[in-house]
């Protein structure tokens, strides 16, 4: 089982690399040279490394979000909207934290982000539990609704005049930079690592984690074993949404210092790829996110040679190839139709 999973991931990465090489050749460049530049500008110097960590931070959170739902047999495509309301909530609380001790201010901001994301995640969970409405469609719909709602709220109440961003958060709510040659990496990355460890502990070593995994294995069996199915579905989706709501730790608290229209957009969908590549295991999410973070920053680094869009193509191919070769997923897919 484990070796099959490893093989399917290795094959997926090879296919993606072959496709990338073709696209690079089509653009008249040498794949070897492009890969060397990409590696040199990401893991080759401190600034590049910092940017990789910065780009990976949101992906760890969204990857964890998708993975938690997946382990409970649910599909959260709504991370995109959840990270957005979470980021907005963080920025709004952060702007009102002036004068508080830093740990308290940061704690309040994180809680606000997690709560907003959790609320947006819990809603489709509840609709699924109460009415049997499929969470996939509802989370997709909520992505669009959250986008329009945040824009309306911002324009009507919060954005600084003539801009699409909120006022700056108080200095005490800012997460310190990691000091990697002026890169955007902040303590937010460390928080993402902590989240991965916490989720690992929760899923492996607590009653709640056991119940959620039981739900993912078989709802009927879980119910027979005494799990309150409806409640577990809502909790799983809220937990998932809350993790996505923390994305702002890296972008809002650690880098920009405010919420901006479109901030971290795309991280939600990419979280699906990260979760797949990490086999839905919280600790494996981290290297998977680092790989996608490397590609994201590396794409910018090689943009002078080849279009950075090649990276988007590669990421999509990785998802397709893993989905096509993964037996685990097929089992989950079959269960999704309960």
């Amino acid at each position: 089982m484990r070796t099959r999973a490893a093989t399917s991931i290795a094959i997926a990465l090879l296919i993606a690399m072959a496709a990338a090489s073709l696209l690079i050749l089509a653009y008249g460049q040498s794949p070897g040279h492009v890969y060397a530049v990409l590696l040199g500008h990401t893991w080759g110097d401190r600034y590049g490394l910092g940017q990789v960590l910065f780009k990976s931070t949101p992906l760890i959170f969204t990857g964890l979000a998708v993975a938690v739902a997946f382990q409970a047999g649910l599909f959260n495509i709504g991370a995109e909207g959840q990270l957005l309301v979470g980021g907005l909530a963080m920025a709004l609380v952060g702007a009102r934290c002036g004068g508080l001790p830093a740990p308290l201010a940061i704690g309040l901001c994180l809680a606000a982000g997690a709560l907003a994301g959790a609320a947006l995640g819990a809603l489709p969970g509840w609709l699924r539990a109460r009415f049997g409405a499929h969470e996939v469609i509802n989370t997709i719909m909520l992505n669009f609704i959250a986008q329009a709602l945040a824009l309306w709220l911002g324009r009507r109440f919060f954005f600084v005049e003539q801009t699409v961003h909120t006022p700056a958060i108080a200095d005490c709510a800012r997460l310190p930079a990691l000091g990697l040659a002026g890169s955007a990496a902040s303590v937010g990355f460390a928080l993402a690592l902590l989240a991965a460890i916490a989720v690992h502990g929760l899923m492996r070593h607590t009653r709640l984690g056991f119940e959620l995994r039981a739900l993912g294995q078989s709802a009927t069996a879980a119910a027979a074993g005494g799990v309150a199915i409806g409640r577990a579905i809502v909790v799983a989706m809220a937990l998932s949404g809350g993790l996505a709501g923390l994305v702002g730790a890296g972008t809002v608290l650690g880098y920009k210092g405010y919420y901006e229209e479109g901030i971290a957009s795309g991280s939600g969908f990419m979280g699906i790829a990260v979760a797949l590549l990490g086999r839905n295991r919280p600790l494996w999410i981290v290297p998977a996110a680092l790989l996608f973070g490397t590609l994201a920053h590396g794409g910018l680094a090689v943009n002078a040679l080849v279009p950075k869009e090649i990276v988007e193509v590669i990421q999509a191919i990785v998802i397709l190839a893993i989905a096509a070769s993964s037996s685990d997923l097929q089992r989950l897919a079959a269960q999704g139709q309960r």
């Binding site: 599909f75 495509i77 969908f269 191919i317 998802i319 397709l320 096509a324 993964s326 997923l329 989950l332």
Partner: peptide, 11 residues
């Protein structure tokens, strides 16, 4: 290949 249809669609 029987890939998950939702994942493949998003991809």
């Amino acid at each position: 290949f029987g890939a998950d249809q939702i994942v493949a669609g998003v991809a």
